Lab assay of single mutants.
Amino acid sequence: MSGNGNAAATAEENSPKMRVIRVGTRKSQLARIQTDSVVATLKASYPGLQFEIIAMSTTGDKILDTALSKIGEKSLFTKELEHALEKNEVDLVVHSLKDLPTVLPPGFTIGAICKRENPHDAVVFHPKFVGKTLETLPEKSVVGTSSLRRAAQLQRKFPHLEFRSIRGNLNTRLRKLDEQQEFSAIILATAGLQRMGWHNRVGQILHPEECMYAVGQGALGVEVRAKDQDILDLVGVLHDPETLLRCIAERAFLRHLEGGCSVPVAVHTAMKDGQLYLTGGVWSLDGSDSIQETMQATIHVPAQHEDGPEDDPQLVGITARNIPRGPQLAAQNLGISLANLLLSKGAKNILDVARQLNDAH
């Protein structure tokens, strides 16, 4: 009898209710805020589980004197976190989706994509230029951005401005803007500013005609071990179906173009009346040469937790077992079709030249 009692006690200790789920994140304040929001949602869904947040620095956090596009290494903000995932030191990792490459290392998958916040870019102005827009900034004003995508589009749109690289986390960039006289304004992701509670610093939100956004911008991705079915089931509740389908289309477009950090590629997606609209573009580094096109596809946005595919093969690095396969494939095909259209119009040449120029500098 006593033996059975011990077995029952052991089973209770090993039951999922007692389990601590370890969540990996970057150390920056924004990353911690984003991770806290994901953990809060998981806690609400699984009140019996405990969650421990483990923060670590990544290569991208450490190399702050070089433009991201020049470092010449993929997975700048993800490699150390993936290493911890691989060694079973954490069970899942919360990322900004735009930091996750469209091809993940073997053994990993994006197990959830959370509801997207505003994906557009924002302009934050130096205190002396508050009330201005990019259009009304004085001639030769210097605007800071760490992104080739932003610089290429904005140089084309605002030729009277000069664009220079600015690195560091959000706090560091804002301090550089406010305390030094080098920059009249800087460009940042609206979602990051909003998550930090800095709505009052948003001086201008850039519309798609001015600057399309990065693939996955404004959404959070939760990376897990691809074979860890328990954790895949656990994080599945975080999937937002519309965000998922938009981001599958965007990531398929980028992957098929073979774009990345070192080339200016941008997108804009919208879901309306059962249609998914995808606009994508590529630019030369100075913005003088560009190709942009829009395509659409009829896609039914499923309700969360309709029964999805059981075999769960990944699409552009994403596993969404609780979302039907048909809409996911339709979104992926839309991204591939748009990429093929741009490639047929000469996108590869623009991107190759951009890559060579970026590598040469």
Rank of each mutant, 00 (worst) to 15 (best):
V130I: 14
V282Q: 04
P159Y: 06
A191S: 07
E250T: 03
G346S: 03
L92G: 06
I53A: 08
D228P: 15
F253N: 02
L351V: 05
A347M: 05
T279D: 04
L64H: 15
I187V: 09
L341F: 06
L188P: 04
T41L: 09
A151F: 09
V353N: 15
F51E: 03
L315P: 10
S165W: 05
I350A: 06
T294Q: 03
D311G: 14
I336R: 15
L338M: 13
D36Y: 10
E179Q: 12
L244G: 02
S141P: 04
I299L: 12
L341P: 03
S262F: 00
A214L: 03
E86F: 08
L148D: 07
G72I: 13
N171L: 13
L351S: 07
L170E: 07
V215N: 00
R173G: 03
R355V: 13
A31V: 01
L338D: 00
L342W: 03
H95D: 04
K132Y: 12
A249D: 04
T133S: 10
I336V: 06
F253M: 14
R246Q: 14
I53N: 06
D65H: 12
A249V: 07
R22L: 14
L315K: 07
P101T: 12
G24E: 00
L30H: 00
Q296L: 13
L49A: 14
V237P: 14
C261Y: 08
N171I: 10
V142S: 10
T136C: 07
G197I: 00
T66N: 10
A189G: 09
K227A: 15
M271F: 13
L232V: 11
R32Y: 14
V23T: 03
Q304A: 15
K345M: 14
D307G: 15
L177P: 00
L137K: 03
A330H: 03
E258C: 15
L315D: 04
I71M: 15
F77S: 04
A189T: 05
I113T: 06
P309A: 14
A303K: 14
A31S: 10
R26V: 01
A55G: 08
L342V: 15
V130D: 15
P127N: 00
E210I: 15
A226K: 15
V142A: 12
L244T: 14
G346N: 06
Q332L: 06
L245C: 11
D312Y: 12
V265D: 02
L285H: 08
A226L: 08
Q50L: 12
K43A: 09
G221V: 05
G335V: 01
G111T: 03
V123E: 01
C261V: 02
E117I: 15
V222K: 02
A331V: 04
D240C: 12
G317A: 04
H120T: 14
A151Y: 08
E223W: 01
E293D: 14
A191P: 02
I53G: 05
H207A: 14
G236T: 09
V94Q: 05
A44K: 14
G72M: 09
G280P: 01
G24T: 03
A320L: 07
T269G: 03
L30S: 00
E80T: 09
N88P: 07
N358K: 15
E139M: 08
K79N: 15
S69I: 11
L232H: 07
K87L: 11
D240P: 04
T269N: 06
H126E: 13
I186N: 06
V93T: 06
L341M: 11
L342C: 05
A67W: 01
M271D: 15
